[in-house]
Write a protein that binds this DNA or RNA. Structure first.
Length: 425
RNA sequence: GGGCAGGUUCCAGAGUGGCCAAAUGGGACGGGCUGUAAACCCGUUGCGGAAACGCUUCGGAGGUUCGAAUCCUUCCCUGCCCA
């Protein structure tokens, strides 16, 4: 059992706040610690932001500790008001349950639940049957409304309105921790920094009710250097589910990160040794793209597997390898002219190509542009390309003549969004 | 339950009968410069149309009017104050 998991986590940037740093460090060095992280069942998939707790769990588990992943179907029915401006949309119980199941399956990919060193539970199992009055008497009496109201997490909501149901969230999360403490001797809860108050409430509750000692650790809420929330793009969340967000796009998400974020991201989202990361951080100017490719490959490998990561890498190399007629300058690395066929592809009936296809429609059809109107606008602005050649007129039709030697052709929207078209008979 | 103030396009926020597809700012997107980065500069930002123009939008439903985001009725929702 490594003596330094805590220090490793800290050095990698996983630690925002800890209840008692010395106690946690000692505990993690001396014994097999059971810890937990909760995940909301608000969607059918987790997104890139959730990788922070996931990776922390992976590190701890590798160091010999026991991980409990709690899917929060019970708490999701209530909704956490912490740091939120508005009340969360109420979801149906069946929906929440189904989403919880999906998330559990997703988590299994990283944690390989075996019932002993990685355990999966759903808090709906113990929260839903709770009897109201005895819950109030046993648990509710330990909570001070005065203190809750003073908490920073509720400040926003006191201005905008906070309903009673949400006000109970903290009690439920604290009760989760108490339950896990009792059932599994779980002594540490981790979560995003916005969960600090909720986690501490659990630590307090364990002390008051059981006289037990438990610890809290939070992760920094990552934002990108440009201020955006981690794991969000203009199109929406960076889902971990390949069906919602393709491995190729996932790979590109990391490649396109801000220079300033590369080091931080390598530490958190990859398992590369720190020495290797430090070496990559030394890269400057255009060399830093090499570090980004490593980041993208490693991160994609963890979420989608090595095969998908490799495909994504090759597709990116193909799309940005500067081999097209328009690419004057030679690309940085001409080692791999990647496999172009792994790019997102749509087959179009040959007859349509014979007749000639209006481009604005086709770009929209394959999802490169949201509407024909937008596609036309982009053509006017010189933002759409066929085989790396700028489309100069909205009259332009796509025909068989556009097919390249490989039998397909490439559509580009902007410099980065690519889609391959192949004829179908 | 009573009183007051509100619900506008991705967000914030103007607009109070025609000049409104709707100011301004932010965001986003495209172009330029670069390194698939940042910063900066230019442009775009409801849908359809090559265009003329048409269509759908201002919480929901109904109504007044030649004409409504703007007026009336009613319903839903939010905030504040009082109970």
């Amino acid at each position: 059992m490594s003596a330094n998991v805590y220090d490793e986590l800290k050095e990698r940037g996983f630690v925002a706040q800890v209840s008692d740093e010395e106690a946690v460090r000692k505990m993690l060095a001396a014994e097999r610690v059971t810890f937990y992280v909760g995940f909301d069942s608000t969607a059918t998939s987790l997104h890139a932001g959730s990788l922070v707790p996931i990776m922390a769990m992976v590190h701890l588990r590798r160091a010999g500790h026991r991980a409990i992943a709690v899917v929060g179907s019970g708490t999701t029915m209530v909704g956490d008001p912490s740091g939120k401006t508005e009340m969360r949309q109420m979801l149906e119980e069946a929906t929440i349950r189904a989403q919880g199941q999906a998330i559990l399956i997703q988590l299994a990919r990283y944690l390989h639940f075996d019932g002993t060193s990685a355990i999966a539970v759903d808090n709906a199992d113990w929260l839903l049957p709770l009897p109201y009055i005895s819950f109030l008497r046993d648990i509710g009496r330990h909570f001070s409304v005065n203190r809750m109201l003073a908490a920073e997490a509720y400040k926003l909501r006191l201005e905008k309105g906070l309903s009673f149901i949400e006000f109970n969230y903290q009690l439920l999360q604290a009760y989760d921790f108490l339950t896990l403490f009792r059932e599994y001797h779980c002594t540490m809860q981790m979560g995003g920094d916005d969960q600090w108050g909720n986690i501490l409430a659990g630590v307090d509750l364990i002390r008051r009710v059981e006289g037990g000692a438990a610890e809290a650790l939070t992760f920094p809420l990552l934002t990108t250097a440009s201020g955006a929330k981690m794991g969000k793009t203009a199109q929406g969340a960076v889902w971990l589910d390949g069906a919602l967000f393709s491995p190729y796009d996932f790979y590109q998400y990391w490649v396109n990160c801000d220079d300033r974020d590369v080091g931080r991201f390598l530490r958190i989202f990859t398992l590369l040794p720190l020495e290797e990361i430090r070496r990559l951080e030394e890269l400057k100017d255009s060399g830093i793209n090499e570090a980004k490719r490593v980041l993208a490959f490693e991160a994609t490998k963890i979420t989608h597997g090595e095969l998908e990561a490799e495909k994504a890498r090759q597709a990116a190399a193909a799309a940005f390898g500067k081999v097209g007629p328009a690419g004057g300058a030679t690309g940085a690395k001409s080692d791999v002219i990647g496999d172009i066929t792994v790019l997102p592809t749509t087959a179009v009936p040959r007859s349509r190509l014979e007749a000639g296809i209006a481009l604005a429609g086709l770009f929209t059809e394959v999802g490169l542009t949201p509407s024909r109107k937008e596609a036309k606008r982009m053509i006017e602005q010189g933002g759409l390309y066929v085989n790396d050649e700028r489309i100069d007129s909205i009259e332009r039709l796509l025909t068989l003549k556009d097919l390249g030697p490989d039998g397909g052709l490439l559509l580009k929207a902007g410099k980065k969004k690519v889609h391959r078209i192949v004829p179908a008979d």
